[in-house]
Write a protein that binds this DNA or RNA. Structure first.
Lengths: 362, 362
DNA sequence: ACTCAAAATGATAACGATAACACGGCACCA
DNA sequence: TGGTGCCGTGTTATCGTTATCATTTTGAGT
């Protein structure tokens, strides 16, 4: 009546023994080939490769971990309320994972209000997720990569960690980002080259380092061109359409109204557009607007937004690759030095929301 | 010089033996408590629970799988180019996984063009992902849940599977969805109640079953009210803004121009709005527009879109819960019958893009 | 008190992979 | 010619958990 379920659960997978039998060697030698440990004769290795293909062998990750090896799993912690942004990173990560034989685990942290994930973070919960029996490393996208307490936990647990965006810290070296400063600098250059002199900026929330850098870069360009940005031309939003709208209202109400507004992300830039529409200010004829990210909204609003394109997918890919090479390094499997700080290329996308300054002399 | 790395890799985790020692029982009894197998005295169980808490024990999933148990990991296959939509499902899944002690693996399939994942699908690759040594089950969101060949693979491998949206099939029973037919029916009712008689619809791509159901529901309501929908009022887009715009141009060019357009998703509805704007047709005064999904774009366009809200997060949660109870059932751990077809509530959101028919008599 | 089934618990042997070590053979040098 | 060392390969033990079966304890019925 009662049947042995243990060995009949679904179809049996090929094990390393099957390969060994097929190739006429010991399992250990097969293991060496699979893990590219070297010290295997070329001819033997090729025979084993053929055997692996023949029996369709794939290593059992559970067994691997159990015997002290890697898990071949990495964790991404998901807590950005801007799901599009995060999802694009994810796509890059999935792609890279596939290429290097890793698997991607994701966990959301925060209070899951509505459809999005917000703060606060349950640190106890996170600490459990960073269990070495489950993962080889972790990737932290913003905003969670700025969280000092979380970084502390990661350091304590000594989990290999790559942060996306963020700034380098002493504890955690690995990082993938774009040069936010340079990007915003270039954007301001563009505005100024179009004759704009009265520029305004809508900053992001204070704890976003990337956003602070955008502000710095934007300001630096203005200074370097011998111009000034008045304090009243600096607003702070929180990355959503609504706050962009409100900040823009403030700016457009100014006596000396700015002719160009840079919002630190596309959502806020969309808010600027709607504020302009409400005030019957034509874009780009009377007001130039630019965002940041090249999010879908940048192309779905009218006029389409001038923006800085972030290579999100590439950032996701790179973060996985970086993490993997670091993991290899600390396992003494490679002698290559791991680059700790990868900067990827951004791109200025000029679209219909910006143009020549109306008061510029030709 | 060379040190034993095996047992010094990061901090040692508590094992079941530690718990057993602490509680003064055998590991087997602890295992029974952890897995709620019963046949343990109340007092013993409580003592063990305390010991588990004290040593901060968490089962090693690798070892579990190795010894024939579950992996406590489920896989979601990610291939929807609409990342927002998919990401919201993900959030629900992550939440549910956390609650029931599962972990979520994700894998992208398709050619990863640009920032999004498109078809075609590499079936060999997928077949490998459905490896029982890695996962207990799989969740398929649209559009991949409509793929007949994939479903065939899932059936062959006998992997527990939940499909989101899609229609029930013989092979794979588990399914989470909203009632697309009823939702579109209700939307048409609303249009008609506002006096509209000349309705138009922009369908989704042919292979989306959900989209076909929306068309059916919309048509049914029209018929049931003694009205008709002319073939020229039926267009087919492919779920993006551009195609919505093109379809709308066709519709707005008609001699007997429709007064209300239902686009099968919000992106296409946004395209309808821009087409109306180009033709200087005022929305909602001269034309009512509605979308489907309540995507972010629905609230970022102007006027904001009337739409059907899909409870994506709840759908994600439910899909995980459903999968887990099914897995329990086939493991003979529970006698409860698993509901195979879960329908969740949608919601009609009336916003500024729709209103009373201009030609309606009061 | 005495049986005997049922409940509670323990002992043992896997699961699949790999670390650590052992070993045979061959090359190279003194 | 006899070490010396490295290369290629095999042997053994082990990781943490659970299935299976063996054993002990409990408790209900006589």
């Amino acid at each position: 009546m009662s049947n042995d379920k243990r060995h009949t659960t679904r179809k049996r997978e090929a094990t390393i023994k099957d390969v060994a039998l097929e190739a006429g060697v010991s399992p250990m030698t097969v293991s060496r080939v699979v893990n590219m440990k070297g010290n295997v004769k070329q001819a033997t290795a090729e025979r084993i490769q053929r055997a692996i293909a023949k029996v369709d062998y794939r290593p059992n990750i559970g067994a691997r971990r159990l015997s002290g090896g890697r898990t071949y799993q990495i964790l991404m912690i998901f807590n950005n309320p801007n799901v599009t942004w995060t999802a694009k990173l994810l796509i890059g990560m999935m792609h890279a994972c596939r290429n290097i034989g890793y698997h991607l685990l994701i966990e959301g942290v925060g209070d899951y209000e509505g459809d999005t994930i917000g703060l606060p973070i349950d640190y106890e919960e996170i600490a459990k997720l960073l269990d070495p029996s489950r993962i080889d490393g972790v990737i932290l996208p913003p905003p969670i990569c700025f969280d000092r307490r979380l970084l502390e936990i990661v350091r304590e647990k000594a989990v290999p960690c790559v942060r996306i965006a963020g700034t380098p810290t002493q504890d955690i070296q690995l990082r993938v980002s774009i040069d936010n400063f340079a990007a915003a600098y270039e954007l301001a250059n563009y505005f100024i080259s179009e004759g704009h002199k009265n520029l305004a900026i809508i900053k992001g929330p204070g704890d976003y380092v990337a956003s602070a850098l955008r502000f710095e870069g934007f300001s630096a360009s203005i200074r370097d061109h011998g111009l000034k940005i008045s304090p009243s031309n600096i607003q702070t939003g929180n990355f959503d359409v609504q706050s962009g709208n409100e900040c823009a209202r403030e700016l457009l109400r100014l006596k000396d109204r700015p002719t160009a507004i840079f919002a630190s992300n596309d959502e806020m830039a969309a808010g600027v557009l709607s504020a302009a529409q409400e005030s019957r200010i034509r874009v780009p004829e009377e007001l130039s607007v630019a965002g940041f990210d090249d999010a879908p909204i940048a192309r779905s609003v009218w006029p389409k937004l001038t923006t800085i394109r972030q290579p999100l997918r590439a950032m996701g890919e790179k973060s996985v690759e970086l993490l993997e090479s670091y993991i290899r390094q600390i396992n003494d499997e490679s002698n290559e030095t791991v680059q700790s700080n990868v900067l990827l290329d951004y791109e200025l996308k000029v679209r219909q929301s910006s143009g020549t300054c109306p008061t510029a002399k030709h």
